[in-house]
């Protein structure tokens, strides 16, 4: 008869965290920066159809790195939660804060209860309705750790290097184009320049009517990066 081996909870959690981190590190990173117009999100992504950045609600966007099917599922869950809340209460009652908490709850539960943790890191971003109202950047890890960041945030395995690069180049009040340039530059490895076909760029622009989310694509992106 086989005997189950005893494994300490510390070891189980550590193994799971290592597993999740390894999965995330295999993928490409993503940065989000505050700018004068709102928030810019830049991801290294060659696909034109499988997005890492998506619209969730009027002023809220979702971004994920790691395993595509897992953060895609989380994105859909977020859209569902937001739309239900907005329909049952009011559009104004949908906030990034409550959405980020729901994500943290879900990821935390999966991390402790399921066989395998999600190999993802996600961002819930909300642009303020007016320049006076602060933007919100919620960075959520695979185990449900929730961080409230400002100025900029980096998601993915290469976060330390990219964060260092941004610390030198970021300053408050950047224009949308400048923020995209800085973001793209920070993602690139030493001596490499990322072109428009290797980047996925989206923005939450305060000035747009109702739906603040838009993708920065095509000629506009080419123009900004050249």
């Amino acid at each position: 008869m086989s005997m189950p081996f005893y494994v300490s909870p510390e070891q189980v959690m550590k193994d799971r965290a290592d597993y999740a981190r390894k999965g995330i590190a295999r993928g490409r990173s993503l940065v989000a920066l505050e700018c004068a117009e709102g928030i810019v999100m830049v991801a290294q992504n060659q696909s034109r159809t499988l997005y890492k950045i998506s619209e969730v609600y009027d002023r809220i966007a979702f971004a994920g790195v790691g395993k595509y099917n897992e953060f895609q599922m989380l994105k859909i869950g977020g859209v569902r939660l937001a739309d239900m809340k907005g329909f049952q209460y009011s559009r104004e009652d949908v906030t990034a804060n409550s959405l980020a908490n729901a994500y943290a709850q879900t990821l935390g539960q999966v991390f402790t209860n399921e066989m395998k943790p999600y190999e993802v890191e996600i961002l819930v971003a909300q642009v303020g309705a007016t320049p006076e109202e602060p933007n919100e950047l919620f960075h959520i890890l695979y185990d449900g750790t929730l961080m409230d960041e400002s100025d900029y945030t980096v998601l993915g395995g290469d976060a330390e290097r990219i964060g260092d690069a941004l610390e030198d180049t970021f300053r408050p009040g950047l224009s949308l184009a400048e923020a995209i340039q800085i973001g793209a530059k920070s993602l690139a490895d030493e001596g490499v320049t990322l072109g428009a076909d290797q980047l996925e760029v989206a923005a939450l622009e305060r000035g747009r009517p109702r739906r603040a989310f838009r993708r920065v694509i095509g000629d506009e992106l080419l123009g900004i990066l050249s």
Partner: peptide
């Protein structure tokens, strides 16, 4: 109180 994501 803290709604979980509707994942099916």
């Amino acid at each position: 109180e803290t709604p979980l994501l509707p994942i099916f």
